[in-house]
Design a protein around this nucleic acid. Structure first.
Lengths: 154, 154
DNA sequence: GATCTAAGTCTGAAAAAGGAACTGACTTGA
DNA sequence: TCAAGTCAGTTCCTTTTTCAGACTTAGATC
């Protein structure tokens, strides 16, 4: 598979994977949701090599997930801010964090707790059906070919 | 970062990323949710090299996400079935598919449609707060250190 | 004018991925 | 019964990525 043209793939997951489906990219996005915005801050909190960080940030900008915004004119300095497209990745990150909490946790308990400002409570993310509001389980979902494809990919 | 001991990391996302945070693994899991179970079937639908497929399947079994189950005694043949831990990755995959549908789609429309058997309707997955049931948005979530960690990682 | 900070770039070595042929145990069909 | 096919891998070699760390640029601070 040619990962550089994966965004032309027929399958939605492949396209998502092309954009954010590697280790560093996912960790960088986590930092973004924790309000990290600057090159040095990403680098020191992730211990990623500067070379790769630079590559990944460029890629995220190219995909429209981050915006590169100047915060100082002289010297020219930029920070990286999530676009709406980037903010919409929140369910992806939260789903992964929650799975990690549930299945890869250790005896110390979870590293972070999430509070929902709207209701004031500590919560877990739950994925539900947009139509009936019930929690989703793989076995209750049936897949149909959509207009974009005949084969079962998805 | 040493990816082979990432499951010992303090952060839940890192641990999830250690298990499923690479391109092929995510695509393999998609196939699993589409009821693919056998080596040859994964290989031909993904066009992954046999070598890598073999590696990734072993890793998923090691993490307890898939189970390697014999379906023929002579010759010995195995298939790979999602465990409960694996099934619990459904929200991760669905979140990625939905983001791809929304932000990386093309003019042809989405490749797959999902029907919720419980309510009979075509749906989108929505991530909500377990406490109040409202859809989650990054900006309405505040993060606290949990028992497992002091620093803000997540 | 030496040192510091931020945001990168460059380079050479190590690790991972890709491509394709090979193996082994059985089945099928002529 | 013998050749060809199937399935689940393994082996070998090449190409691509990643890693670790030094270097660069431009202005700011001591």
């Amino acid at each position: 598979m040619k990962w550089d043209t994966l965004d032309e793939e027929q399958c939605s997951l492949s396209r998502t994977v092309a954009a954010v489906g590697d280790r560093w990219t996912l960790l960088i996005l986590r930092e973004c949701f924790l309000r990290v915005r600057r090159f040095e801050a990403f680098q020191s909190s992730l211990q990623i090599t500067r070379h790769l960080l630079s590559e990944r940030l460029k890629k995220l900008v190219r995909f429209g997930i981050l915006r590169r915004v100047p915060y100082s004119e002289a010297p020219k300095r930029y920070e990286y801010i999530l676009t709406q497209k980037g903010l919409d990745l929140y369910p992806v990150i939260m789903a992964m964090v929650h799975w990690g909490d549930t299945h890869m946790g250790d005896e110390r308990g979870r590293p972070l707790l999430h509070e929902h400002k709207s209701c004031g409570k500590l919560f877990d993310p739950v994925m539900v059906c947009s139509e009936c509001g019930e929690p989703l389980h793989a076995k209750q979902v049936h897949v149909h070919a959509g207009p974009g494809r005949k084969e079962a990919v998805g």
